[in-house]
Amino acid sequence: MAVQDSTRSSSEGKSGDDGEDLSIFHAENLQNNMKSIYYSRTFLSIMGGVVAGIWGFTGLMGFVFYLLIMAIASLGLLAKAKFSVGNYFDSWNRIILDGFFGGLMSFVLFWTFAYDIVHIF
Protein backbone atom coordinates (compact mmCIF):
# COMPACT_ATOMS: atom_id res chain seq x y z
CA MET A 1 0.00 0.00 0.00
CA ALA A 2 1.35 3.37 -0.90
CA VAL A 3 -0.13 4.95 2.17
CA GLN A 4 0.79 2.58 4.95
CA ASP A 5 0.68 2.59 8.62
CA SER A 6 3.35 0.07 9.37
CA THR A 7 2.60 -0.04 13.05
CA ARG A 8 -0.95 -1.12 12.33
CA SER A 9 -0.15 -4.69 11.45
CA SER A 10 2.31 -5.18 14.27
CA SER A 11 0.26 -3.75 17.06
CA GLU A 12 -1.98 -6.76 17.65
CA GLY A 13 -0.67 -10.10 18.78
CA LYS A 14 -2.19 -13.42 19.64
CA SER A 15 -0.62 -15.96 21.88
CA GLY A 16 -2.12 -19.41 21.98
CA ASP A 17 -5.31 -20.43 20.29
CA ASP A 18 -7.56 -22.00 22.83
CA GLY A 19 -10.80 -21.25 21.08
CA GLU A 20 -11.45 -18.17 23.18
CA ASP A 21 -9.52 -15.12 22.19
CA LEU A 22 -8.72 -13.96 25.69
CA SER A 23 -5.19 -13.85 24.43
CA ILE A 24 -5.35 -10.89 22.10
CA PHE A 25 -3.18 -8.11 23.27
CA HIS A 26 -1.22 -5.09 22.16
CA ALA A 27 2.10 -6.68 21.25
CA GLU A 28 4.03 -3.44 20.90
CA ASN A 29 3.20 -2.38 24.44
CA LEU A 30 4.09 -5.82 25.75
CA GLN A 31 7.51 -5.58 24.12
CA ASN A 32 8.05 -2.16 25.65
CA ASN A 33 7.14 -3.49 29.07
CA MET A 34 9.54 -6.41 28.67
CA LYS A 35 12.34 -4.03 27.68
CA SER A 36 11.56 -1.91 30.70
CA ILE A 37 11.85 -4.94 33.00
CA TYR A 38 15.13 -5.92 31.38
CA TYR A 39 16.64 -2.48 31.95
CA SER A 40 15.47 -2.43 35.56
CA ARG A 41 16.91 -5.85 36.31
CA THR A 42 20.23 -5.10 34.64
CA PHE A 43 20.59 -1.83 36.50
CA LEU A 44 19.76 -3.45 39.82
CA SER A 45 22.22 -6.28 39.18
CA ILE A 46 24.97 -3.73 38.61
CA MET A 47 24.12 -1.79 41.74
CA GLY A 48 23.88 -5.02 43.69
CA GLY A 49 27.33 -5.97 42.44
CA VAL A 50 28.76 -2.69 43.68
CA VAL A 51 27.16 -3.18 47.09
CA ALA A 52 28.44 -6.74 47.34
CA GLY A 53 31.94 -5.60 46.45
CA ILE A 54 32.04 -2.77 48.95
CA TRP A 55 30.54 -4.93 51.67
CA GLY A 56 33.24 -7.50 51.13
CA PHE A 57 31.21 -10.57 50.26
CA THR A 58 33.18 -13.50 49.00
CA GLY A 59 32.27 -16.84 47.55
CA LEU A 60 28.81 -18.22 48.08
CA MET A 61 27.62 -15.23 50.09
CA GLY A 62 27.82 -13.06 47.01
CA PHE A 63 25.62 -15.37 44.93
CA VAL A 64 23.11 -15.63 47.75
CA PHE A 65 23.10 -11.84 47.79
CA TYR A 66 22.42 -11.86 44.05
CA LEU A 67 19.40 -14.12 44.51
CA LEU A 68 18.16 -11.82 47.23
CA ILE A 69 18.52 -8.79 44.98
CA MET A 70 16.63 -10.45 42.16
CA ALA A 71 13.85 -11.44 44.54
CA ILE A 72 13.60 -7.85 45.75
CA ALA A 73 13.59 -6.71 42.12
CA SER A 74 10.69 -9.04 41.37
CA LEU A 75 8.77 -7.61 44.30
CA GLY A 76 9.52 -4.10 43.17
CA LEU A 77 8.36 -4.86 39.62
CA LEU A 78 5.18 -6.43 40.94
CA ALA A 79 4.52 -3.29 42.93
CA LYS A 80 5.17 -1.18 39.85
CA ALA A 81 2.57 -3.19 37.94
CA LYS A 82 0.20 -2.53 40.86
CA PHE A 83 -0.12 -6.27 41.37
CA SER A 84 -2.53 -6.62 38.44
CA VAL A 85 -0.14 -8.43 36.16
CA GLY A 86 -2.83 -9.26 33.59
CA ASN A 87 -3.03 -5.62 32.59
CA TYR A 88 0.57 -5.34 31.55
CA PHE A 89 1.89 -8.84 30.79
CA ASP A 90 0.57 -12.05 29.46
CA SER A 91 1.78 -14.25 32.29
CA TRP A 92 3.17 -13.97 35.84
CA ASN A 93 6.39 -15.61 34.77
CA ARG A 94 7.37 -12.56 32.80
CA ILE A 95 7.70 -10.46 35.89
CA ILE A 96 8.90 -13.04 38.37
CA LEU A 97 11.18 -15.40 36.49
CA ASP A 98 12.17 -13.83 33.20
CA GLY A 99 15.66 -12.40 33.23
CA PHE A 100 16.34 -13.76 36.68
CA PHE A 101 19.79 -14.95 35.77
CA GLY A 102 20.34 -12.51 32.96
CA GLY A 103 22.02 -9.98 35.19
CA LEU A 104 24.32 -12.53 36.81
CA MET A 105 27.29 -11.74 34.62
CA SER A 106 27.00 -7.99 35.16
CA PHE A 107 26.63 -8.62 38.87
CA VAL A 108 29.82 -10.68 39.03
CA LEU A 109 31.69 -8.14 36.95
CA PHE A 110 30.86 -5.18 39.13
CA TRP A 111 31.21 -7.26 42.29
CA THR A 112 34.81 -8.15 41.46
CA PHE A 113 35.42 -4.63 40.23
CA ALA A 114 34.20 -2.95 43.43
CA TYR A 115 35.83 -5.57 45.64
CA ASP A 116 39.15 -5.00 43.96
CA ILE A 117 38.95 -1.25 44.25
CA VAL A 118 37.95 -1.24 47.89
CA HIS A 119 39.72 -4.21 49.39
CA ILE A 120 42.71 -4.97 47.29
CA PHE A 121 44.10 -1.87 45.72
Binding site: E12, I24, F25, H26, A27, N29, L30, N32, N33, K35, S36, I37, Y39, S40, F43, L44, M47, I72, A73, G76, L77, A79, K80, A81, G86, N87, Y88, F89, D90
Partner: peptide, 16 residues
Protein backbone atom coordinates in the same frame (compact mmCIF):
# COMPACT_ATOMS: atom_id res chain seq x y z
CA UNK B 1 16.12 0.59 43.44
CA UNK B 2 13.77 3.52 43.24
CA UNK B 3 15.79 4.82 40.32
CA UNK B 4 15.91 1.44 38.61
CA UNK B 5 12.15 1.05 38.77
CA UNK B 6 11.19 4.60 37.91
CA UNK B 7 13.61 5.54 35.13
CA UNK B 8 12.63 3.01 32.42
CA UNK B 9 9.15 4.52 32.32
CA UNK B 10 5.69 3.33 33.22
CA UNK B 11 4.22 0.05 32.13
CA UNK B 12 1.79 0.31 29.26
CA UNK B 13 -1.44 -1.60 29.31
CA UNK B 14 -1.67 -4.47 26.86
CA UNK B 15 -5.40 -5.05 26.97
CA UNK B 16 -7.02 -3.97 23.70
Amino acid sequence: MVAGLAVPGKFHSILP
